[in-house]
Design a protein around this nucleic acid. Structure first.
Lengths: 204, 204, 204, 204
DNA sequence: TCGTAACCGAGACGGTACGTCTGGTCTTTTT
DNA sequence: AAAAAGACCAGACGTACCGTCTCGGTTACGA
């Protein structure tokens, strides 16, 4: 989202390189503040002060509050997502959605995820990175699950995989953002049951 | 979100009453600015200037940008939602979701809805009003559709109606907010087909 | 300063007459607030609230904070000024200046007088009334003292009476406003001694 | 009034130092607006806009409108005051008072001086600075004149110098603030004549 | 080994919008 | 028609952050 991490050389990196210590301090301060107050109430001034760092050192690395919060949040979040491969589609889907709700039910994590989704709506610059570095990896990981199911013959080769994933995660994000109903175990099981029923009926 | 509109008298309304003209001017200016720039880029100063109104007259009625935008948006949006009663559940669900996507695909409306959902995540004060005055009326209207289906025998009396609605609208909000896939007619038909399949399989 | 108090009829007093009770309540509240916080920190809103009176009832009578404070202050102040007639110029001048300093040393009075002088500098509308209803009566009363001295032969008929009064009161207001030196009894005696010396030397 | 200008080092000036250009721009804009509208009608917003400067840059240096106006006014005003040394007390006093009236009769200067005196009455914070940085330097300069007169034997060593200065300037400020009589050449000569008469009679 | 480019923390810069306050006026109902 | 109450428009207040720039100083390359 922030740096390009181009791996093919570059022309020649003159001058003092960016300090990894400074970067760590900024990300740690961001994580703390995200947990303490949430993204909306966090300011870059406060991040810099907390990290004992100049504001310019933050802006040198991240162009906006959203990209910074994104970097502080996303690796950790993605690492916590399960990558199930039980040999059974229903079990895999259950594990996927259970893993997601487990992580998201932690107050700081759920709040930050909601805050980031909010920020993405407000900042078009952020939206591209969000799709590429959050939505896309999530979906890629999910697609692998579905492709294994196709390979096993549990899912038709022409199945509408995009929609299956939206039927699985859409209701979950819906409840996360609007809070009208709980994100509990029963919810997970019912969603998976419905999706599996639709798949088995050939509707997906 | 702002006023309680209690209709049983009150003790005696002393002093000059709030002017409905002023209120209209503020809401109209808000609607215009919401369409022109979106919620995030709209400022209360600009609303007041556009409405030829003092800032205090805005703050007297609405405590925050979110509540103001909410009031300017929500009545109109809810009025545009279909209230289908075709006698057939599948047809009703199709009309519900088609009506929603039709309204939400209008750029100004979609943008404002996304902005409001974002704002709700940032302002806990707003969240209660949002659930009560937006989410709840929407769901009540949807529930009526499902209850008619139960009365007709097209849906089991113990059906998980909350989940049915989340399976219908969850994927739609998901695509609206993340933009990873389109909100077109095929999407609507496929979602309804999947939900109907799950219902008919007894999974909901 | 505020009302014209025209004593020759007026055209015909239609409608409800201004309530003297209301006027008293406003003036009393003004006097209190003047003593509590000073003129600068007093607001018309606060006066109206304290007097249990609408703001319009204040503005109906007085066009500005200055005129209101003036009316609350000036009668009382002028009433407290001595009108000496001892038969001796020196003794009369001593009593004049002593009377003035005695009143002005009371903290609330001194503060209000300073505040009114300040207000007069800021509000040109007030300046005329100030000269006519405060400065002029004061000077008229002083002139009577000097004229009696002329009649007695203690002062030359062509004496520069305006300057004599400025030499008497100028230093006093100077110390009141700038606070660089005290307004005590020695000051009064020394000023009068100097002025009398100048008079006796024929310089005034 | 604003900065302490301590000249002995300080511990180490971290961060970007205050820009003298910005300070000049603010003071110049203040001087202009003081002349155009007077202190009471001047706003800090307008000063900032006129100086092409953020409001924070004004507030960083001066806590109030009064201190800002003071700094913009006082150096210039003091520089315009005469420092007479003719060898004759009467001539020195004449030059002092003539210089003061000459400067104060310029409309912008007189209005600003009146406005500042008014402001000093309204803002106790300002009063200390006013005495230290305006009243005290003026009086110090005047005292030098009187001390030279003492050294020359034109004034008794125990003369009440404070009172002499109040007799000279008190009437002048009195007429400036109340406008009841003019500040012309005759006034200056008459005041000096009276003060000299009192001195020569041994009354001061 | 030295020059220099880019970094560092600190904090001022020009801006914008905030939410509050007061001024003076206007609009209610009540007396 | 004047009363009390309080909303009206207007706009300055002082604060908080924004994202950029400047300061004195440091670090690590490459000439």
């Amino acid at each position: 989202m922030a740096r390009d991490d181009g791996e093919h050389e570059g022309p020649a990196p003159r001058g003092r390189p960016l300090s990894t210590e400074t970067e760590r301090a900024i990300l740690d301060a961001t994580t703390e503040l995200l947990a303490e107050r949430g993204l909306a109430a966090m300011t870059i001034e406060e991040v810099a002060a907390r990290a004992h760092v100049g504001k310019a050192s933050v802006y040198r690395r991240w162009p906006s509050k959203g990209t910074l919060a994104f970097d502080a949040f996303v690796t950790d979040f993605l690492d916590r997502q399960p990558v199930p491969d039980t040999g059974d589609l229903r079990a895999d889907l259950l594990e996927l959605l259970r893993g997601w709700t487990r992580v998201v039910r932690r107050p700081a994590t759920g709040r930050t995820l909601k805050g980031l989704i909010a920020e993405v709506q407000r900042d078009p610059e952020l939206a591209g990175g969000w799709r590429e570095r959050f939505i896309a990896p999530m979906r890629a990981s999910h697609m692998a699950v579905l492709e294994r199911a196709i390979a096993r013959g549990q899912l038709a080769p022409g199945a509408n995989t995009g929609l299956i994933m939206d039927l699985l995660y859409g209701p979950a994000y819906h409840r996360l953002l609007h809070g009208h109903l709980p994100l509990n175990g029963a919810f997970v099981e019912d969603v998976v049951a419905a999706v599996m029923a639709a798949i088995e009926a050939g509707a997906l």
